[in-house]
Design a protein around this nucleic acid. Sequence first.
DNA 1: TGCGGATGCTTTAATCTTGAAATACAGGCA
DNA 2: TGCCTGTATTTCAAGATTAAAGCATCCGCA
Lengths: 157, 157
Amino acid sequence: MSARADAKDKLRVWLRLLRTTRAVEGALRESLRTNFDTTLPRFDVMAALVRAEAGLTMTALSRQLLVSNGNVTGIVERLVVDRLVSRADEARDKRATRVRLTSKGRAEFATMAAAHEMWVAQLLDRLDAADVRALTSVLAKAAPEHLPDHLNEPEAP
Amino acid sequence: MSARADAKDKLRVWLRLLRTTRAVEGALRESLRTNFDTTLPRFDVMAALVRAEAGLTMTALSRQLLVSNGNVTGIVERLVVDRLVSRADEARDKRATRVRLTSKGRAEFATMAAAHEMWVAQLLDRLDAADVRALTSVLAKAAPEHLPDHLNEPEAP
DNA sequence: TGCGGATGCTTTAATCTTGAAATACAGGCA
DNA sequence: TGCCTGTATTTCAAGATTAAAGCATCCGCA
């Protein structure tokens, strides 16, 4: 196959990927809003934090979510106001802040996460196990780690 | 496989899908900014318009891009200021507006689209033809048309 | 004809998002 | 020690995004 045809096929599949992702994201956003009165970015931040018992720095958060540093500041700020996360000075590095889920945040996230998992399963209802495996393996090859430099996330310390 | 394990696998693959899409989108956004001093939403609107010789209404645009109607108003407004698209009253329906690429818009888009296609091909470099086919067929099953109602786009008149 | 619900669009407030600039601190090295 | 560069974070301006409200128009139907 010519490089030109290959590029066209990749463009087509990229557009399809983008469209599917947007549709699923939109459905999840709507569900989060109507059921829990919250937003996708807030959910994403809490999801990143729930696995980090000891909390994460702002930079670790922004790298994990692939969003800008300034963006995280605002989302965390609003979560702090709602007492869902807390901030504490990092002992070893006076520049850094350690962000953690509060117990309230942990409790609320648990409820939302269960619903979220169910919604995703419903949205991807038509995919069978083989589809999921195929998708997983293709995405592994195209994964962010293989993309240009500035998108790469340095390994944890 | 249990429904529960199935749900977990779907959640995992969804997170991977989201992350990959974000990484590619981020790279494309950066390339558009540094090379053409424009943004992804502007590019998306122009891409939707380039295939519609006769133009599109605001609603058709917002449905095609899966974004809200109010959002399109703002993006088109800025494109009009830059003389890349034009607005005209729709003859048959006084509520509607028909948006078109100007010749300047068409020319600028042609240049950007060529680069964009190349960038996408590079970003998806590691996928071979079989991967692209597999991805296409899986996404076809999970496509937006199969997602909840409010995400569906009614067929053209 | 005229009513009533539906549709197309814009506006608004709130949130999200980015990229760049500014501030503060860290760490290596002369 | 003192500087220089790099890192962590916040702030800012501009743009993007949504949901909801409001206005104008359309269309089916009594």
